[in-house]
Design a protein around this nucleic acid. Structure first.
Lengths: 220, 220
DNA sequence: GAATGTGAAGGTTTTCACAGCA
DNA sequence: TGCTGTGAAAACCTTCACATTC
């Protein structure tokens, strides 16, 4: 609409798939594979080659006809698109079950998300060391986030208090939030909020199982 | 295609949204709210009213014109569709960081998924009690799953061993698998496999942040 | 020959808009 | 009047098919 920078809109689903490509490409790179075709890349992710090519063509592609795509170059290009070519400063709010597990989750680190602050409201946890990180009092959330220039906050607190915490996070000027609490949170338009709903996938499985059974039951 | 049972295909995205509706309706029910309109339900999930009505119309709807939908009835109907009107027997394989957190995750229980077996290969963990559940030796995975009629298995093991474990799970006759390992697993067609990729949401946030910045930078 | 890059076709999902009902 | 239920239109996404390039 504004200046024509030649960009078509990248769709939500393309972004999701870029994450998948990135993961596969990282593995291929480690295996010292130099080149991959859209056909093979598609096979890894159960997609069609055309889909892969369309996705990759969004950012001015540089595959070689007759050959395929250069693994390392493609991986780095996707990293840039997704913003994985930098370190993101991440804070965790809540170190119960889930929060605590995520602090130790290597996969985040590997993709450039380094959790270096933890907040909790439990007096027994505050001041203690959690996998090498000091647990701060949630009362100091706003100042803490600001002083440490946190980019992204992960919320892993009970649903009942999640909205209050989000409000503080927003006030602190953080504009990326990943929410694990099973509730829908309100944030201003300029803040990126995404929800991780782990029950959803399980429910999808149970739906498919129930559905599959009825198919099995009705087929001759 | 076969017998016309009057069913239109329910789309993937509708299924995902049913999970969301279910969650909201559970809350509304507890708050003793009897009726909800598509407009309000939509607002809760940042959807359009038309979308909500289309979704609900897939299973012969029974809203009241001029009024809305009966909360409890709708909730129960969605539970039936998603297969949440029963107890699913779930086993956890791997009680490291993530696995351990999920065993204690109340939300699963609440939706009818009861984790009642745990497997691990760590001798220090085998035989011990983990949140009230005995940790079994992964060497006995196949027999254990069979003997206990496990419906769904959650995989939370390192990526390197995940495929071997899936093969065993499939051989044991389990047909629902939720995979947390960051790798693509192969299963036969009749097995439902879903992946939970927690890095993906974080990467989506970082993509949005990078993108948003560039928008901010180019706008007047 | 082998594989990319891409308009165009085809398919699916969402939104619109309004008839119909409490 | 207020809101559902739903065909039809619009938007969006995926696949096809082929010209193009190495």
């Amino acid at each position: 609409m504004a200046a024509d920078d030649g960009k078509k809109k990248i769709s939500e689903s393309t972004i999701q798939r870029l994450s998948l490509y990135y993961r596969v490409l990282s593995i291929l790179e480690k295996e010292n594979i130099k080149t991959i075709s859209s056909k093979e890349l598609a096979k890894h992710e159960k997609l069609t080659p055309a889909q892969v090519r369309k996705d990759l063509s969004f950012f001015g592609s540089f595959g070689t006809r007759g050959l395929g795509y250069p693994v390392t170059e493609l991986k780095n290009r996707i990293a840039t698109i997704l913003g994985l070519d930098r370190e993101w400063k991440v804070a965790m709010v809540g170190v119960g079950n889930i929060g605590s597990a995520l602090v130790g989750y290597k996969e985040f680190q590997r993709h450039g998300f380094s959790i270096n602050m933890i907040f909790d409201n439990d007096q027994r946890k505050i001041g203690s060391n959690h996998k090498g990180i000091l647990v701060s009092d949630i009362a100091n959330l706003k100042e803490g986030l600001r002083e440490n220039n946190i980019d992204i906050v992960i919320i892993a607190v009970p649903a009942t208090v999640a909205q209050y915490i989000v409000d503080d996070i927003v006030e602190a000027g953080v504009s990326g939030i990943l929410n694990f609490a099973p509730i829908n949170l309100k944030v201003p338009e300029n803040v990126i909020l995404r929800n991780e709903n782990m029950s959803m996938e399980l429910e999808h499985i149970s739906f498919s199982l129930v559905n599959r059974e009825s198919i099995t039951a009705t087929k001759e």
